[in-house]
């Protein structure tokens, strides 16, 4: 579904991504794990068009989309749920969801808006309860749900999630991960970026490990979960922080 080929991205003189080649197929969850500053967010921002790659290509269904502006990439079916949620705080929950339908093209896609709205409200009932409330009045977890729901309202083929567990209580992390797992069945290619490597790899079919802008390791989700070097570098600290967050566990 979506594929990057030797993607290189720089901020000024700083090279952030170096020859990153990854692929996500439909009905697949792929996790990108790595430390802070490894380039995970930059990878998603480059695929979504918010940042232009210096070199390399992004292909959506074998069509090159790199170099297109972000709004056009969104319209071709790539949806990014950005880091820190970035919901529109001054607009209502319903407005937030409806704004994402700007990315829908074609008459058929516009006809299913009500149906899809119903679907995300079923997925996140709390959003239905608060649909008239300003986005800024929601709690952190609810804002994350709104951000994911908004990502779905554009009716994407590819859903990219940047740190959806960030700042959430452990019980909410589980809930969000379960939702992401359920979404796999809906003809979506899911690209999940996480610092919480344990949580991400548990639901991922495959994963890539990013280190200072390079893919240093790739493999199946379970395979990476049991990999010694992944355990040492990413799972230990993540597991530690989970325990810290919830001492009763």
């Amino acid at each position: 579904m979506i594929r990057t080929e030797n993607l290189c991205t720089s901020y000024g003189y700083v090279e952030v991504l170096k020859n990153v080649s990854i692929e996500v197929k439909t009905n697949e969850i792929v996790a990108i794990i790595g430390a802070n500053g490894a380039g995970k967010s930059t990878l998603l921002r480059t695929i979504s068009g918010l940042v232009k790659p210096r070199e390399g290509k992004v292909y959506l269904e074998s069509q090159a989309v790199s170099g297109h502006p972000a709004y056009r990439i969104a319209r071709s079916g790539v949806s990014l749920v950005p880091e820190g949620r970035q919901i529109f705080a001054s607009l209502s929950v319903l407005d937030n969801l409806m704004l994402a339908t700007n990315a829908r093209r074609g008459k058929e896609a516009r006809l299913t808006i009500d149906e899809d709205l119903e679907r995300v409200f079923t997925l996140f009932p709390v959003l239905r309860e608060r649909k008239g409330q300003h986005g800024g009045t929601l709690s952190g977890g609810q804002q994350q749900m709104l951000a994911i729901a908004r990502g779905l309202m554009s009716r994407p083929k590819v859903l990219m999630l940047d740190e959806p567990s960030l700042g959430l209580a452990p019980i909410l992390v589980d809930e969000v991960m379960k939702v992401i797992q359920d979404l796999r069945k809906q003809n979506l290619a899911i690209l999940l970026v996480e610092q919480n490597a344990a949580a991400a790899l548990q639901i991922a079919d495959r994963g890539y490990v990013l280190e200072t802008g390079r893919v240093v390791l790739q493999g199946g989700g379970k395979e990476l979960l049991n990999n010694e070097s992944v355990k040492d570098h990413y799972l230990g600290s993540a597991a530690f922080s989970i325990n810290q967050g919830n001492p009763n566990r």
Binding site: G49, L50, L80, S154
Partner: peptide, 16 residues
């Protein structure tokens, strides 16, 4: 309004 609040997020919504 969305563009005023967060242009990048607005672009991600398919807004030109």
């Amino acid at each position: 309004l969305a563009t005023a609040e967060n242009p990048d997020a607005a672009a991600l919504m398919g807004i030109n």
